[in-house]
């Protein structure tokens, strides 16, 4: 059973919803009541400077971190406190910042790890190698020796093959060339069209605004602004470059 199977039970509920989440590391609160909702088929871009709490938000949503208060809802069901591995098996795919792959495993072995989410290996390989031909050429290469772009493609291939209900992406474009970023966001848009709720965290990127349906700016553990990307973009330029 996956989240998409549950979804109809609560009509109209967004696939991913955070309700007044607070979170703390070692007694220091870093999220002070975050509300976010990502309906099916929607890409929400979460933007903001370093230390704003974006990665913490992702950690809460994927189950690696338990909120000190507030609720995580998936398809209307309260999943706060569920383990990351259980959420992953329900169809939540998370690609953490800069380390979405196992560097000492080969490409093929990395893909094998995607099968825990309940998809057969044949399918994973087919999807991955069709969409990213370069991965097919390097299936027996150790992933740590791939270029940065290829590594992110490998990480994204998992998101693509699993056909997730919720996709959480942290700094997908970090350190990558613009062309590669564009290709990766093409994949993000493609996944969204299949009905997945996508939460993308980026520090700087106009590219993500191109594919996002909704953008939120986070500062100091709070959502500062939320709205259509074009409105947010102006606010961002101001925030980052002081124009």
């Amino acid at each position: 059973m996956t989240l998409q199977d549950i979804a109809p039970s609560v009509p109209g509920a967004p696939l991913l919803e955070l309700q007044s989440i607070t979170a703390a590391y070692g007694g220091i609160e870093v999220l002070h009541g975050v509300d976010l909702a990502v309906p099916a088929g929607t890409v929400l871009a979460l933007l903001g400077p370093n230390g704003a709490g974006k990665t913490t938000t992702i950690s809460i949503a994927c189950g690696l971190l338990t909120p000190t208060s507030g609720k995580v809802l998936m398809a209307g069901t309260d999943v706060s406190g569920a383990s990351a591995e259980d959420l992953a098996r329900l169809g939540v795919v998370t690609i953490p910042e800069g380390k979405g792959i196992f560097p000492n495993l080969t490409v093929k072995e990395n893909l094998l790890m995607a099968t825990y989410a309940g998809v057969p290996m044949d399918h994973v390989e087919e999807v991955a190698y069709t969409r990213f031909a370069r991965l097919g050429e390097r299936r027996n290469q150790v992933a740590g020796t791939l270029s940065g772009g290829e590594q992110q493609m490998l990480a994204m291939a998992r998101g693509l093959a699993v056909n997730p209900a919720v996709l959480l992406l942290d700094e997908l474009s970090m350190g990558l060339a613009p062309l590669v970023v564009e290709e990766l966001y093409g994949v993000v848009a493609q996944i969204a069209r299949e009905g997945t709720s996508i939460l993308v965290v980026e520090q700087f990127a106009r590219t993500v605004l191109g594919v996002a349906d909704l953008a939120a700016v986070m500062v100091n553990g709070r959502i500062r602004a939320l709205g259509p990307p074009d409105e947010i973009e102006n606010e961002l330029s101001a925030a980052y470059l002081g124009v």
Binding site: E85, P96, M113, Y116
Partner: peptide
């Protein structure tokens, strides 16, 4: 933790 995120 990445293994957890894969469902392992």
């Amino acid at each position: 933790s990445l293994l957890k995120l894969n469902g392992g």
